[in-house]
Write a protein that binds this DNA or RNA. Structure first.
Lengths: 229, 229
DNA sequence: CCAAAAGTGTTAAAACTACACCCATGA
DNA sequence: TCATGGGTGTAGTTTTAACACTTTTGG
């Protein structure tokens, strides 16, 4: 027991809410909690913060352990420092949320914990204490932020059709949008650029592909442009 | 040295960015940093999180120690967990920002630290490491949030005139607003209710006082109403 | 030739912006 | 009576919302 301090210190963890789009719904990644506690419920992926890594690094490390994914959108959500019930050790958890583009990628399970799975956000399984409220807050943040920050793109592949993009918004905001008005708005944003490429092997007219040009977006944002859907 | 752990743990602190409105500007509260380090610069009020209090409780305690104020708007801002330069102990800081209504209240200095003062946000003094970036982030959050959440009221007394409210927005957003359009918008919000009371002892026509009815606001918000200035 | 999604404009309603004068009060 | 800020309405412009049909492609 080599680490001693003058005052007690809470343990510090990160927890990650990873969102992705699949089967027409927003999905969240959960892992089986391997504690011996009741019923072996599900939990957000997460773990201890090491003393030689930043909080963001810890979150990325845990996310990679859970999904094998790197290079995903990751943003700090909130820090939960509630007191634990008597007898438990105090844990402070810095929660992050991630937006993952699953399209075409295989989701890696993590053997050392047993199990990893994606659940539709509407019907999450029973989760360990507090994790349901972290999940709610993360989803609320996503719903709020998607309207005025260009984060919807993060859930799609680099090349996407306008229909796919509209679908992202319809699923997150939980309402239908008007196709023509949506296209008008998106196409007026010069950082959504058409590629010389169209869909293939579809049983209907092939859609144009677009890509999100972050550079252009940031240049505009700096000039005061305010993204909005 | 009674507290020993298997793995090293960072120290946990809270830092508070307290904003108030005074002398036609947004002010931020700073304390003299009593370390023996260079030049004795200013710092955000803050301190260690005790093991028997939540993060929010710690923030309120530190704020009360600095200003004597209770019952202020307090919201978590961000958790800073960057690595310290070699040789320093790792510190993780959970930052909060507070909106304080100073009107008519005396700001208590805190004797045990020597000095407390309010600085205009435009010209902050030299501050200890990192605190300037916490301050920037807090101000950015305030500027962003004030437009779509009814937090501007927190900087005013319970009774306020529409002119005072407009002034809050003009100062935070740093641009003039049109008086008639502003009134039209605010008066269309039924949670801003006129009181049976007007200004006194002013050398011009006395203004009507209003108050922010949080109950009514929350009822509307639940129904999907979106505040916006 | 059928099913399925792509793509495309117009119009009415609502929201926003700009703008100027008279009123009430205390000094 | 003067200086100061309180309070009020309208018209032009911009933005949003609603809405239906033709085109392309593969099966």
């Amino acid at each position: 027991m080599p680490y001693t301090y003058e005052f007690p210190r809470p343990a510090l963890t990160v927890d990650i809410v990873a969102f992705a789009l699949a089967r027409e719904q927003i999905q969240v990644m959960l892992v089986r909690h391997d504690s011996e506690s009741l019923g072996n419920p599900w939990a957000l992926p997460g773990g201890w913060v090491r003393v030689d890594e930043t909080l963001g690094e810890a979150a990325r490390r845990e996310l990679r352990a859970g999904t094998g994914l790197t290079d995903v959108f990751l943003e700090q959500l909130y820090t939960f420092g509630g007191l634990e019930p008597d007898g438990c050790e105090r844990v402070v958890s810095v929660a992050y949320y991630a937006l993952v583009n699953l399209a075409g990628r295989i989701v890696q399970t993590r053997p050392e914990t047993g199990d990893t799975a994606w659940f539709p956000i509407q019907e999450p399984p029973e989760m360990v204490l507090y994790h349901d409220s972290i999940l709610s807050m993360a989803y609320e943040r996503l719903r709020g932020k998607v309207r005025y920050q260009p984060i919807g793109f993060e859930l799609l592949p680099d090349k996407f059709s306008l229909r796919q993009l509209q679908h992202v918004y319809e699923v997150i905001l939980d309402r239908k949008l008007d196709k023509r008005n949506f296209r008008k708005k998106v196409l007026s944003m010069e950082f959504v650029v058409a590629l010389n490429e169209i869909e293939k092997d579809v049983a209907h007219r092939a859609a144009q592909f677009y890509r999100f040009d972050r550079r252009k977006y940031e240049r505009l944002a700096k000039k005061g442009f305010q993204f909005e859907i």
